[in-house]
Computed example of a mutant assay.
Amino acid sequence: MSTQTLSIVIPAYNEGPTIHHILNKVKAVVLKGDIRKEVIIVNDCSKDNTEEAILTYKAANPDLPISYYKHEVNQGKGAALHTGIKKATGDYVIIQDADLEYDPNEYNILLQPILDGFADVVFGTRFMGGNPHRILFFWHSIGNRWLTTLSNMLTNLNLTDMETCYKLFKREFIQSLELNEKRFGFEPEVTAKISRVPKIRIYEVGISYYGRTYEEGKKIGWKDGFRAIWCILKYNLWKK
């Protein structure tokens, strides 16, 4: 079997103090079989030392293949993901936040249904399985479940965590989509559009979650929740 590649797309905004931690975790992961890693970082016009931290890390770790891109104007997480997805060359693409909320050691868990020949897309759910979860915001969890339910009603999927960061795709599927949302509307948009791909096979696996407080750098807010509702309706009912 020829060597396959997992493209790890990391959007980054003002993550200078911590981005080396997530890159260390990515570097340490040993992927199953003959799969290697390709790391694509998109700096969304950070105002801190994110660029310096990334370039310093890249120079000090030549054994981790890192491709670095930056936006000259801040456009939002979704826009950074669009850039990273377009640049991906691997057989599979996974979204990885630059913070420490999700654990790269679980890449193999997400890859397994694809490697076994069952799946084309795998969502990592925070609401299923026995992995550790940090206890944080009650209304966030209620909001996530409500958004997932609304999304499921319109996509006819039975996901438990539509808003999860960890989504792994066969590259040809994710690059075939025309994605528009520049901020946190990426999640409902990509879910709606991937659900309409003919004969697509979508799986879920349980993952852990090490959530951050706002003091620790969490960025999503209540306005993003309302935008998510709009995106669920827009990309399912009007199917743009």
Results as ranks from 00 to 15, higher is better:
204 E>W: 04
167 K>Y: 04
179 L>E: 10
65 P>Y: 02
81 L>H: 07
93 V>W: 01
202 I>A: 05
95 I>R: 14
199 K>E: 13
168 L>Y: 02
127 F>W: 07
216 E>R: 00
67 S>T: 14
74 N>V: 03
26 V>F: 06
8 I>E: 04
226 F>K: 15
81 L>E: 06
4 Q>F: 06
172 E>N: 07
46 S>Q: 01
5 T>D: 02
159 L>W: 03
142 I>D: 12
173 F>R: 01
139 W>V: 06
66 I>F: 13
132 P>Q: 06
25 K>D: 10
239 K>C: 06
107 Y>Q: 02
2 S>N: 11
57 Y>K: 11
65 P>R: 01
224 D>G: 08
42 V>I: 15
150 L>V: 13
118 F>P: 02
39 V>G: 09
185 G>H: 05
60 A>C: 04
15 E>H: 05
56 T>V: 03
75 Q>F: 08
102 Y>E: 14
237 L>N: 09
188 P>M: 15
204 E>Q: 14
55 L>W: 01
198 P>E: 13
179 L>S: 12
212 R>E: 12
25 K>C: 05
196 R>E: 12
131 N>K: 14
78 G>V: 05
10 I>R: 01
110 L>N: 00
50 T>I: 07
144 N>M: 13
174 I>H: 11
37 K>H: 04
211 G>A: 14
210 Y>G: 00
82 H>W: 03
75 Q>S: 12
221 G>N: 15
63 D>E: 15
78 G>L: 02
133 H>T: 14
12 A>S: 15
57 Y>S: 14
25 K>Q: 14
189 E>P: 04
62 P>L: 03
32 K>C: 11
63 D>L: 00
62 P>F: 02
64 L>H: 08
160 T>S: 15
129 G>W: 02
166 Y>D: 01
98 A>W: 13
102 Y>M: 09
133 H>C: 11
42 V>P: 09
42 V>Y: 09
54 I>S: 00
193 K>I: 06
123 F>I: 11
137 F>D: 15
183 R>P: 03
219 K>S: 14
121 V>A: 03
117 G>D: 12
210 Y>S: 11
187 E>M: 12
8 I>A: 05
17 P>H: 01
115 L>I: 11
113 P>E: 06
39 V>C: 08
12 A>P: 05
176 S>K: 14
178 E>N: 14
197 V>R: 00
151 S>D: 11
191 T>L: 04
100 L>N: 06
151 S>H: 10
105 N>V: 12
171 R>Q: 13
236 N>A: 09
194 I>W: 05
74 N>F: 05
45 C>H: 15
99 D>T: 11
95 I>L: 15
88 A>Y: 08
185 G>C: 03
239 K>A: 05
137 F>C: 07
102 Y>I: 11
100 L>E: 12
82 H>R: 12
146 W>M: 05
58 K>I: 10
211 G>C: 05
206 G>C: 02
171 R>F: 07
93 V>C: 01
60 A>M: 10
70 K>Q: 13
136 L>N: 07
178 E>K: 15
1 M>V: 07
2 S>I: 10
